[in-house]
Computed example of a mutant assay.
Amino acid sequence: MNNKQAEEVLNVINKSISLSQGNIFQLRKDFEQLYLKFSSKHELNVKIQNVSDIPGFKICAENAQDDHIILFFHGGSFTAGSTKDHLDLCGKLSRESGFCVFSIDYRLAPEHKFPDAVEDCLMSYLWLLKNGIEASQIIIAGISAGGTLALSTLLSLRDNEVELPRAAVCMSPLVDMLFEGHSMVTNKGKDWITQERLEKSRRIYLKGNSLTQPLASPIYADLHGLPPLMIQVGSHELLLDDIIKFYEKAVDSNVEVTFELWKDMFHSFQIFSSCIEEGQNATRNAGKYIKHMLSL
């Protein structure tokens, strides 16, 4: 790895979290402590706005407008993560775009299985529509598993003939639960997630459901009719080849895609933007993209 900042952060991550050991509940605590360790200190206005039984949070940076909304889905391999440990990223997206973020804590496995998380994300979008936010005023954004859920939500909305949001931003999404991309081999040791961890999370989340079910693996879906997408991925990600394959399929399906490949970056590097310049720039680009799309 040539990027010194990324290498140092990767070393801290590998020392801080036991990705292959311990139970899922300890893993959640490890994730939270790790992400909070890299969080910046921001002045944010955070308001609880639950969607039925789903915890929801409206997050606004200073001077952010709330007439347009970024609907955000956190990462964590469908088994961990929360708005709390992604608050820094939400705040930066709000600051860079000038709009408020609405983040939900969707149901996690193993307590809940697929497609419960998808249903929660879909419900949160419908809730925004019901509360006066128009589809054209919404951008869906997500990172890692949240990026997958962003795509799953788009597919669900399209198939149910619900008006689609203006666009979506997907950071390091899991798009193929088969994990067959060659980068699973070539990037081994360059990323902080492992094949073992991916397979374990897949097993816990899907619990016997088909690995190629489109709402779990969006790469197997018909992508026609989706709104514009921004996709960000690091060149050192295990999931790199899967994401590139999805991007190519989306383009072939006449979906407008803004694709960013970040050299030497690992999975979900935007979370660590307080220490990695590329993470700052990628988050800034996402904010600019959101601002541009919502101004059309």
Rank of each mutant, 00 (worst) to 15 (best):
N3A: 05
L10M: 10
N14E: 03
S20P: 01
Q21G: 00
N23R: 02
N23M: 05
F31Q: 03
Q33L: 12
L34Y: 05
K37F: 10
F38T: 02
K41V: 12
E62R: 11
A64Y: 02
I69D: 07
L71S: 06
H74S: 00
S77Q: 03
A80E: 06
G81V: 07
F99K: 00
C100G: 08
C100A: 13
S103A: 13
I104F: 06
I104N: 04
R107C: 06
P110K: 03
E111Q: 12
A117Q: 02
V118H: 11
E119G: 00
A135F: 14
T148S: 08
S152T: 03
L155R: 12
L157H: 08
L164V: 14
L164S: 00
A167N: 04
A168M: 00
C170T: 02
S172H: 07
S172D: 05
M184V: 06
N187K: 11
G189I: 06
G189M: 00
T194H: 01
R197S: 15
R202F: 11
R203P: 00
T212N: 11
T212R: 10
Q213T: 14
G225Y: 12
P228L: 11
E237G: 06
L238P: 01
L239N: 04
D242I: 00
E248I: 05
A250I: 01
V255Q: 08
E260A: 05
L261A: 11
M265D: 00
F266C: 14
F269L: 04
Q270Y: 09
S273D: 13
C275E: 14
A282E: 12
I290W: 15
L294W: 09
